[in-house]
Amino acid sequence: MSDDVRYPSEKPEHPYFDSSFSGMLLGTLVSRFCGGCGYGSIGQLYTRVFEDEKLDPKLYPLVIGIGCYSQIFFLVHKNAQKMLTLHGRAPAIATGMKMANPKMKPIIFSGDGDCLGIGGNHFIHLCRRNLDCILFIFNNSIYGMTGGQAAPTTLYGAMSTTTPYKMFEPRSDGVELALAAGASYVARTTVAHPRTLMKYFKKALKHKGTSVIEVITPCVTYFGRKNLDNLGSKGEKGEIMDTGGKMFEWIKKNSIHINQAKFMSKEELFNKYIIGEFRYNPSKSEYSEEYKKIQNIAMKGD
């Protein structure tokens, strides 16, 4: 299939093409994402870290929720053991996997609707227990797979198919929720900062406990084309963000590092994304190790 006329896979190929699932399965790189979407590059960054860190596929299963990013299994590493789960239930399934096989460290791909909407309860309790896993929240502030409805993280005043009179609800913040619930490593970054995303991913791989990494990704088709890029800043004249490049500019303009955010007032931070590492607490006790102690006590007999 490699000389498929539709998408000729010309040589030399992308350096990580051979280690991608689609490369192995179809001989050419099939990415079912819209032009300008951030998930394609997240799949590549996952494959890069998986390849460079030489992760053992048996110890790092990939649990993917339901959303646009569910199609990311075409792009992730070919050896990774990937499974698609139900909408919002990925954290619960990962809990079961981790407790039944404590050597494993599940990596969960979840979206803003998937994790803060329908799966909120499982997300909170996953962080409360501080289970050893990595939870990615892809925040494109829209329900992309079902056609652009408003998500719990949609910005104030944004247009979407279910908020024709602009979004009026206050938005929920995944990082604040994770901090309050007790996750031990919480960070937020964007797709426009790919190196920091890989740095956080590698740090989370070594961290014992729940690592929550929120990733701001653009959704051009349903968010960008429907909104002006003065969403975050008041008063400026905005224009439609109808290409990936414009959305990347908007993301870079709207993301403020945590150190700089300390000196900014509430109004300035309105509709802005604060990026950086919010909490890194390696000393917090990890859930499966605590349960191991109970097992040792129980197995010693009465």
Partner: peptide, 26 residues
């Protein structure tokens, strides 16, 4: 825990059955 297993009281029934499925997957 005496047989080296794990008994988890989850946050709701949805999480319980999903944890069971996760464990059975593994």
């Amino acid at each position: 825990p005496e047989v080296g297993g794990c008994c988890m009281q989850m946050e709701d029934e949805l999480a319980s059955i999903n944890a069971v499925m996760g464990a059975s997957l593994v």
